[in-house]
């Protein structure tokens, strides 16, 4: 099924109506939605996307185009967020192969009812129709950060740990900042307030224990909570950290679910 709405004013009600219809037809499952900013290539991409999804056969879909802002909306029946994300990846790759050089900007969501999608796209449709210079897949749920989001500074020498914590904690509604070593972390702490500092003990330059002591000597008001996420598992070190007033100590390898629980306990 293919809908075309010439104007955004027509597109939005029509889109919401379709979402409402699909959600109410299948209340047990989520509806995955992929928005693709198509620029001037809307019509060319639409054909490619439609053909690819039809060839997939494993997923039932609806496709809508908002011509004035070149936005393509794909609704995937019975698709949770991870599946929607995966399809968005495939579509992005397909378009990149077919239309080389064109940055592909997608936004994804998975909703259980029409009210949820209303909340997700309320006043953001224009934002979704603005293409970026780089290819990207944005998860709309992650961008709904509360105004009073807690600010966390992640200090770790390992880039992959920082990257994961940034994705994971942002997803959990925190505002995440990164520092590679204690020096740059101290600079940041001097210049801006943080609610929590999540740090490794093995750091370049200043090691973790003196780093904690530095933070405590700064007499910040309010003092940030300090949580250690470290490879060090020596009992004496853990005891020492607690004696120094650290709020929690988590050892690597870690479980993201447990990390989230223990961080929320700190506030």
């Amino acid at each position: 099924m293919l809908h075309t709405a010439e104007q955004q004013s027509e597109f939005v009600p029509s889109f919401k109506q379709t979402v409402h219809h699909l959600c109410s037809n299948d209340p047990e499952h989520q509806l995955g939605i992929i928005f693709i900013h198509a620029g001037s290539m809307g019509r060319a991409w639409e054909g490619e996307i439609s053909n690819w999804l039809k060839a997939e056969r494993t997923i039932s879909f609806e496709l809508m185009i908002e011509d004035s802002h070149h936005l393509i909306a794909i609704m995937l029946r019975r698709a949770a967020l991870d599946e929607t994300h995966y399809y968005a990846l495939q579509l992005k790759m397909l378009l990149e192969q077919k239309f080389a050089g064109q940055p592909i900007v997608c936004a994804i969501a998975a909703v259980a009812d029409a009210a949820e999608i209303e909340e997700l796209i309320e006043g953001r449709l224009a934002e979704l129709t603005v293409g970026g210079a780089y290819s990207d897949i944005r998860v709309l749920h992650d961008e709904l950060r509360p105004m009073d989001a807690r600010r966390i500074l992640v200090v770790d020498h390992d880039e992959s740990v920082r990257e994961f914590l940034n994705i994971w904690l942002t997803m959990k509604g925190y505002e995440v900042y990164e520092a590679e070593d204690a020096y740059s972390a101290l600079d940041r702490i001097h210049s801006e307030p943080f609610d929590l500092i999540l740090t490794e003990l093995n750091l370049y330059g200043i090691n973790g224990l003196p780093f904690i002591s530095h933070i405590q000597k700064m007499n910040l008001n309010p003092a940030p909570k300090i949580v250690i996420l470290s490879e060090q598992r020596v009992e004496q070190t853990i005891d020492y950290c607690y004696q120094q007033g650290v709020n929690d100590y988590i050892t690597k390898p870690f479980s993201p679910v447990e990390l989230d629980e223990r961080l929320s306990r700190c506030f």
């Binding site: 967020l81 994300h85 897949i137 994705i167 997803m171 993201p256």
Partner: peptide, 16 residues
Amino acid sequence: PYFVYLQRHIVDPDPF
């Protein structure tokens, strides 16, 4: 983008 997908959905129940 694939690595982001993996990290973003690491606790979801469905397999990757």
